[in-house]
């Protein structure tokens, strides 16, 4: 053993400690057993559908996170700024949407509101009808409103957490209230809320299979159809578990990179 090899080995051990090697080995062995031990001959037939479903899943997730976040901003702000009806409204909104199951909300929107709208006379000849017939607008609506309630609560805390001094400093520079909001208050609040918001978006991703119950042909819908067709239990479920695990892993890595970029510690 040369003197030079020692630090290299130490570095290697730091990156790849023994326990991590064991984890990886177990993971690979499990994967090998799943791939070779179970039957996957049904898969090629469903791949095109699965790919479409995957895109639908991601699109619904992205749309609901974006719309939800845009609704969350006024919700959070109202609870910090207002002392009157706006605050009550927004507190009531967040409490209701966070206090009831997402699946129930989804069904209320699709089978409740959505079905009721179809009974409005003349609605079937309007330009909106092709969209109102579809299930995905209601899925996006329900998921967005639900996400908004959680994100609104997070943003409330974040807005309240920004020091008064920083806002007053902005005002002292002669910035308008709008400018103070966009240049100081919002960015600082966002930076604070980022880790929690990141967690919420991951949760949101895992809520997407629920929309299969309102006939949106997303990934889980394809999986459950393949299960009915093939009478297989484990293979399709393991496959979708693997897909979600990989997606979550990628998402967490990406969000961590964003967090590092805007981290408070770097200030």
């Amino acid at each position: 053993m040369t003197a030079l090899a020692l630090p290299t080995r130490r570095r290697l051990r730091k990156v790849m400690p023994v326990y991590r090697m064991i984890y990886i080995a177990i993971g690979l062995a499990t994967l090998y057993l799943i791939v070779t031990g179970l039957s996957w001959d049904w898969l090629p037939k469903y791949l095109p559908k699965l790919w479409t479903g995957f895109q639908i899943s991601l699109a619904i997730w992205a749309a609901s996170v974006i719309f939800g976040f845009l609704i969350a901003l006024p919700l959070g702000l109202a609870q910090v700024l207002s002392r009157g009806p706006l605050r009550w409204l927004s507190v009531a909104y967040c409490t209701t949407l966070r206090g009831t199951p997402l699946l129930m909300q989804l069904w209320l929107f699709y089978y409740g509101l959505g079905a009721m709208m179809t009974q409005i006379p003349g609605i079937r000849s309007t330009v909106l009808w092709p969209y109102l017939r579809e299930a995905w607008p209601f899925a996006v609506l329900a998921l967005s409103l639900n996400f908004a309630a959680y994100a609104g609560e997070i943003m409330r805390g974040a807005f309240a957490g920004v020091g008064r001094g920083e806002i007053e400093a902005g005002k002292a520079f002669g910035m308008s209230s709008t400018k103070v909001f966009f240049r100081i208050w919002l960015p600082l609040a966002l930076r604070q809320a980022l880790p929690t918001l990141a967690g919420e978006t991951v949760m949101q991703l895992k809520a997407i299979p629920l929309v299969a119950t309102v006939t949106v042909p997303e990934m889980y819908a394809v999986i459950s159809q393949s299960r009915h067709d093939t009478l297989l239990t484990y293979e399709p479920l393991l496959l979708i578990a693997g897909i979600y695990l990989s997606l979550t892993f990628l998402l967490v890595q990406a969000l961590a990179a964003v967090e590092r970029r805007f981290s408070l510690a770097k200030r």
Binding site: K49, G114, A115, T118, Q119, R124, T213, T215, Q225, D229
Partner: peptide
């Protein structure tokens, strides 16, 4: 099974979990 077989997967089928759900959507015109 029959529809999938008949149309060879070329037609987009709306898949429902239960009979009453699809009948409700039929009445709703969806």
């Amino acid at each position: 099974d029959y529809l999938t077989r008949k149309f060879d997967g070329q037609v987009d089928l709306k898949i429902y979990q239960a009979q009453d759900e699809q009948l409700a959507d039929l009445v709703a015109g969806r």
